[in-house]
Amino acid sequence: MAMAAARRRSLLHGLARRPWLARLLVIAALLALWEVAARFLVDPLFLSPPSQVIMSLDKVFGTRGVPAALQLTLFELTVAFVLAVAIGLALGLVIGLQPLIRRSFFPIVLLLYCMPQVTILPLFILFFGIGAASKIAFGVTHGVFPVIVTVVAGVQNLKPILLVSARSMGASRWQMFRYVIFPHMVPSFFAGMRLGMSGVLLGVLLAELYVSVAGIGYFTTLFTQNFDPTKLLGLIGVLAAMAIVLNAVVRRAENHFARWRTE
C-alpha cells in the first residue's frame, strides 16, 4: 500500500516537473479516444482507428502514384516558397525603405493581404491551367504578403537612435543598410518566412484540393470517394506532420537569428 502510494507520488512529481510528459499523455489520451470511437462507435467507412492508420502507412505510399503525387506537391511548395520569399523580400525592402512608395503602396499591400484570395482561385485555374503553374502561382500570392508585411515592419521599427548613432559615426547609406537596417530586419524576416510558408502551404493545398487531377489533391479526393479513411488519414497525417516539422525548423532558425533580442 505504502509503496504504491509512494510510487504514485513520485509519478505525479515526475509529471509536475515535466510538462512535456503530460503533453504526451494528453496526445495519447486523444489517440485512445479516437481509437475507441473508431472501433466501436463510428461506421468504419468514415473513420478508421489510428493504430490501423499507422500500420497501413506503407500501403498509402505503396499506392500507385502517391509517391509521384507527393513529389509533385513538394515541388510546387518549394518553388512557390522560394518565389514568395524572394519577391516578398525585394518588395518589402523597396516599400520599407522608400517613404513615398511605402505611403502609397503599403496600404494597398495590406488591403490585398486582407482579402479572401480563395474567391479568385477559379481565376488562377483559368489563367494558369490545371498544371503545377496555377498551384505555384496561388501559393505565391498567399505566401508573398506576410513576407512583405514583416519585412516592411522589420525595416520600420528600428529605433531611430541607432540610425542617428550610425550617422554620427560616419556610416554611408550602404553601410547603414548593411550594418544597421539589414541585421535588425533578419529576425522579422524569418518570422515572415514562417508565416509565408504557412501561406504557401495553404495556397498550394487549396489549389490542389480544388483542381484534384494530380498531386495530393487527386488522392485525397480519390480516397474520400472510395470511402477509404485509412489511406486518407494516413496521407493527411503525413502532410500535417510535415507542416509541423517545417514550421518548427523555421521557428528554430527564427529564434537562432533573434537570440540577441532576448539574451
Binding site: 495590406l110 506576410p146 508565416l195
Partner: peptide, 24 residues
C-alpha cells in the same frame, strides 16, 4: 513570437490583418 503586423498599422486604411488562415 513577433506578431504579424496588423493591417491597420501605419496606414490610412483600417482593415484587418490577417490573410487570416496564414496568420499562424
Amino acid at each position: 513570437p513577433p506578431s504579424p503586423p496588423s493591417c491597420a498599422e501605419g496606414s490610412g486604411v483600417e482593415v484587418v490583418p490577417g490573410g487570416a488562415f496564414e496568420a499562424n
